[in-house]
């Protein structure tokens, strides 16, 4: 860190070059830092600050209440129920995304007629707007004219249309399935990219050792995928945990608060109940939970 005197005198040009480079580096990062401060740090600090007030959203006026918002939240069943829902949704949809993602990636890695077209079709749900995905699924789920119910009735699996989104546990199951459908291609992309870079020699060596298809998968493929999966799971956990659009548009958190996750609770507090302070407090708690998760996960993954 500290440069000793003689070294500086020995190469005066290098020192000034270092300083100049440092300045240039700072200059290049400056726009990023500015934008971060303006659109992320400032709103973040105001969220923490607002959490200490009781504020009526339309006027944005209110009074200091200290930790009252937090006390109220932690004592309310609704916060804990939303957290539980959040965990159920995240774990459920993530598990399906990863399992299904790996399987489909393995499938698409093999020789398949029209493979490029098949890949495009599979990856497409990920790039689809959430709004579009939800609309399409709501139309599929429709009670009177939805094709899904009619297929199931035609196949004799059910004899009455199923209420996919309005009752529990159907609503949570539907949500998890639609989430998995929408986001598993992300896992496919990552795994597929990694599969393509596994050297064939590894498989050949395993074959020579007498490993079958399953053995090769367990001994060669899975260990090679480990690093990718660690990052994929981290990213998807964060994104799924804070998912708003999909849940809000598909079930709105209902029935009752059966599928209400923390982001929906923030929105409800802020705009339905017009309590900006409470909303900010939920958001801050949510952030703390995610931070805790990330620290634990990263320290575990490093081992």
């Amino acid at each position: 860190m500290f440069r000793e005197g003689p070294a500086t005198t020995a190469s005066p040009g290098k020192a000034s070059l270092d300083t100049r480079y440092g300045l240039l580096g700072a200059l290049l990062i400056a726009p990023t830092v500015l934008v971060f401060c303006a659109v992320i740090v400032y709103p973040l600090i105001s969220a923490i600050y607002l959490g200490l007030f009781s504020i009526y959203t339309p006027t944005m006026e209110g009074e200091w209440v200290g930790m009252d918002n937090y006390r109220r939240l932690l004592a309310s069943g609704e916060f804990w129920r939303s957290l539980l829902n959040n965990v159920i949704w995240t774990v459920g949809t993530l598990a399906l995304q990863v399992i299904f993602g790996i399987l489909v990636a393995l499938m698409l890695h093999r020789n398949l007629v029209f493979r490029a077209f098949a890949r495009s079709l599979v990856l497409f749900p990920y790039f689809l707007s959430t709004v579009v995905a939800v609309l399409v699924w709501r139309w599929l789920f429709n009670d009177l004219y939805g094709v899904l119910n009619h297929l199931l009735m035609w196949a004799g699996i059910v004899d009455m249309p199923v209420d996919w989104l309005g009752t529990m546990p159907n609503a949570m199951v539907s949500l998890i399935l639609v989430g998995a459908w929408k986001y598993f291609p992300f896992v496919v992309i990552a795994v597929l990219a990694r599969l393509q870079s596994i050297p064939d020699e590894l498989y050949e060596a395993a074959s020579i050792d007498g490993a079958g298809a399953w053995g090769r998968f367990v001994d060669v493929t899975l260990p090679q995928l480990r690093d990718v999966l660690i990052v994929v799971v981290l990213l998807r956990t964060i994104w799924d945990f804070k998912e708003f659009d999909l849940i809000y548009l598909l079930t709105g958190g209902g029935p009752i608060i059966g599928t209400q996750t923390l982001p929906l609770m923030v929105y409800k507090e802020a705009f339905a109940l017009n309590q900006m302070g409470g909303a900010s407090a939920v958001a801050v708690l949510m952030m703390l939970i995610m931070l805790l998760f990330m620290i634990l996960y990263l320290s575990r993954a490093r081992d």
Binding site: L144, P161, V162, L165, G166
Partner: peptide
């Protein structure tokens, strides 16, 4: 209101 549920379409919950 509960007793009328059986006369409404299944999706009435939405």
């Amino acid at each position: 209101y509960r007793s009328m549920r059986e006369f409404c379409p299944p999706g009435a919950t939405g």
